[in-house]
């Protein structure tokens, strides 16, 4: 474990990413304490400039932009994490089965996965949310539904490579059951690429959520960064901060997650272990 920390810390970018991500996480966690109540509440006059009565100004309805940013951080991280966890679980089960059993099961599962891969993922997410109505659970579902296929293929590849390794064959000979082999033997060994891909998936999920909210397909009861940008874009010429501030937040968060993902890759990649 200390080894892991040392290798992670060697990547400067990853540490910076971790700091930013920690800050965003802290902001999100602190939101209900620092900005109690609804972030939609009209706190002051509309269109107050930043660094005035409100640190980051107010929007067209007089809502505190900083409160929105803090509550939006919660939403973005929550959606990103939950959607990714769902996608990874689906992908691990399907990809694991396909890779482990091969043959006809593999064929069926892979054709099924490819079917989803042929649909442009963002358009598919829009369609799902539009049909299911924009509520936060539907948005999470839609993001998970478009995110699992690439991870599935990755997991399958890992499992196929592992399937014929000696330690797995030894387990088979010992009479271990398939489920035990998959979950206790192969999965731990395949975990690092899944973790790395999953961490990047969080960033993608945040972007999808923001894009949906920007298009007006966010949950109207939940504050999010995409919503802030979408509602502020009409005023881009008169109130730049309405788009710029949440835009910057998305940029930094996604960048941080990518940096951390990179660091995880460095730390978990066995080929880099001797460094």
């Amino acid at each position: 474990m200390r080894d892991f920390g040392r290798r992670f810390a060697r990547n400067r970018g990853a540490v910076i990413g971790l700091v930013i991500l920690g800050a965003v996480l802290g902001l999100g966690l602190a939101a209900p304490v620092v900005f109690p109540g609804d972030p939609f509440q009209m706190a002051g006059k509309p269109f107050e400039r930043p660094l005035g009565a409100f640190a980051l100004g107010t929007d067209m309805m007089g809502r505190d932009v900083l409160a929105g940013l803090a509550h939006g951080a919660r939403t973005s991280l929550l959606i990103g994490l939950v959607a990714t966890v769902i996608a990874v679980v689906i992908a691990t089960v399907l990809g694991g089965c396909a890779g482990y059993y091969g043959g006809r099961i593999d064929d069926v599962l892979m054709r099924f996965t490819e079917f989803f891969q042929t649909i442009p993922s963002f358009l598919f997410a829009i369609v799902l949310v539009a049909i299911l109505s924009p509520r936060i659970e539907n948005i999470i579902f839609a993001i998970a539904a478009v995110s699992w296929p690439p991870i599935t293929r990755l997991v399958r590849g890992e499992f196929m490579a592992m399937r014929n390794r000696e330690f797995v064959q030894a387990c088979v000979v010992l009479g271990m059951r398939d489920r035990a082999i998959i979950f206790t033997e192969i999965l731990p060994n395949a975990l690092s690429p899944i973790l790395v891909t999953g961490s990047l998936m969080v960033a993608t999920a945040i972007l999808i959520e923001s894009a949906l909210a920007f298009l007006g397909l966010g949950d109207p009861n939940v504050m999010s960064w995409g919503f802030m940008i979408g509602s502020g874009r009409t005023f881009l010429r008169t109130a730049w901060w309405l788009c710029a501030i949440p835009g910057l937040a998305i940029l930094l968060t996604v960048l941080a997650i990518n940096l951390v993902g990179e660091g995880l890759n460095d730390a978990l990649n066995p080929r880099l272990k001797h460094l």
Binding site: D38, F40, Q41, M42, M60, M61, G216, P220, N221, S231, T234
Partner: peptide, 16 residues
């Protein structure tokens, strides 16, 4: 469109 969404947000806050 947008003004209708803003109107809804206003109603929600006001009735709160």
């Amino acid at each position: 469109g947008e003004e209708w969404q803003r109107f809804g947000e206003y109603v929600k806050q006001r009735l709160d």
